[in-house]
Amino acid sequence: MTTNEIEIAPNSALLVIDVQKGFDDATFWGPRNNPAFEANAAALMDAWQESGRPLVLVQHASRNPGSVLAADEPGYAFQDFVEERRDAAALHITKTVNSSFYGTPDLAEWLTAQGIGQLVVAGIQTNMCVETTARMAGNLGYDVLVPLDATHTFDLAGPGGTRLSADELAGATAVNLHGGGFARVVTTALVLAAARTRLPA
């Protein structure tokens, strides 16, 4: 895939989902993938700030007992690299479920008011809140791009003793989103290159 195959709209919104300190707790979550996640997500945030495109931060307040992402836990806070860029955000959404479209304030309402039709979706976890948000955005008619290397997830156990690695889950998300027509799965480098070729007026 080449840079010419995607365009980043001048008002394309970057959604950075649930990049919170609680996800650094390996004893709680288990093995993760994609050690390049933090650098890639930060690069996207910087590019959006430099170009004046809108950045949306999403923060998860878990209602599950004992969750490290509960609103009264230290893990609820944004990770440092996101907190350092927080002032650049045009919108801050809090949610208690997987989809960023079921949060406060209302994401779809805000996007409509801003005339935004394209979303770039990054964050944690690839196969949970990122995939759910991207699927719903696709259903709602947005042009959705998911730079998979600006997401990460964790190994996960399923029924009957089945266990998939974080990389396997990320691969499944890529197939679900791209193959299913919900979003185009791309790389951070491709998004950054395309964003620089079409800057806001």
Rank of each mutant, 00 (worst) to 15 (best):
L119W: 01
V120L: 03
V121N: 02
V121S: 02
G123M: 15
G123L: 15
G123Q: 11
I124T: 03
I124V: 15
Q125E: 05
N127W: 15
N127Q: 15
M128L: 15
C129Q: 05
A134N: 01
R135H: 14
R135Q: 13
M136P: 04
M136E: 14
A137V: 09
A137I: 10
G138D: 06
L140F: 06
L140G: 07
Y142W: 04
D143F: 06
V144W: 02
V144Q: 03
L145F: 12
L145Q: 07
V146M: 03
P147Y: 00
D149F: 09
A150N: 07
A150L: 02
T151I: 01
T151R: 01
H152N: 09
H152K: 13
H152Y: 14
H152T: 11
H152F: 12
H152V: 13
H152R: 15
T153E: 14
F154N: 04
F154G: 01
F154D: 10
D155K: 10
D155G: 00
L156G: 07
A157T: 11
G158L: 15
P159Y: 02
G160A: 13
G160H: 06
G161Y: 00
G161P: 12
G161V: 10
R163C: 06
R163V: 14
L164I: 05
S165C: 05
A166M: 14
A166W: 11
D167M: 12
E168W: 07
E168C: 06
L169F: 11
